[in-house]
Simulated scan of single mutants.
Amino acid sequence: MNIIQSNIAKLPTKYGKFKIKAYKDGSQEHLAIMSQDFELIDAPYVRIHSECLTGDTLGSLKCDCQNQLDLSLKFISEHGGLVIYHRQEGRNIGLVNKINAYALQDLGRNTIEANLELGFKEDERDYSIVGYIFEDLGIKTLKLITNNPEKLDYVKSLGVEIKERIPAITNSNKYNEGYLATKKEKMGHLL
């Protein structure tokens, strides 16, 4: 891996005051959003949040991404820790393909069927940058905020101790009920 890093900068937000650092891996740029006391915490709360432009920025109701990001930033602001903003849009199929997957979902496919029909695996994400960020920030023990068993397995594979898993449960709506059911029933998410 040939990673380019930024310096750490201050980031005041509506959730609280954070520090932020960017990592560039090839064409993808990821963020580490840290509470101000991050370095003082032995087992920080950590959320690996996968980018979702339509949810995080536009407030799409087809997913629970923005709600999970809001929940995590508020929680980290209050309890200390880190949000890794993992920029691999649409489970790493890219924005254009994600919108094409949305169009297939409009025709009745679930998220997995749409990705497969477009020629992708159900989930194309690569978490290797997360391991690099953990190493860079000295994370050996954490409390992971996730519903995704793949993220749990990946963190364990790094030899990082998970002291606790904190669910990232948010309210569903009529637009994302099928999406959440697919995540639970087909992808094993802990919902």
Rank of each mutant, 00 (worst) to 15 (best):
L11V: 15
I169M: 10
N100K: 14
E185V: 00
S128F: 09
C52L: 13
E117G: 12
K140Q: 10
L180T: 05
C52A: 13
L118K: 09
R87A: 06
I99A: 05
I3F: 14
G59P: 15
E124P: 02
E78C: 01
P12T: 14
I169E: 03
L104A: 06
E150K: 06
L191N: 15
L61M: 05
Y23C: 02
T111V: 07
H30V: 00
N2Q: 05
N147D: 03
E122V: 14
L58I: 08
V155T: 13
S72W: 06
F75N: 03
M34Q: 08
Q66T: 02
E124A: 03
K19E: 11
H30L: 00
K143Q: 09
T54A: 01
T182A: 02
A168G: 15
D70V: 06
A181H: 01
R165M: 08
E150Q: 12
G90W: 09
K174Q: 14
I48V: 14
S60E: 13
A103Q: 08
A22Y: 10
L53E: 11
E161M: 11
S27N: 09
D106I: 11
G94I: 00
D153C: 07
L191W: 13
N97D: 15
L95F: 10
M187E: 05
K19W: 15
D153M: 08
Y15G: 01
M34L: 03
T13L: 07
L142D: 09
I133Q: 04
L107V: 13
S60P: 08
Q88L: 05
I76H: 09
S72G: 13
Y23G: 00
G178K: 12
T13S: 06
G59V: 07
K183D: 05
T141K: 12
S50F: 01
Y85Q: 02
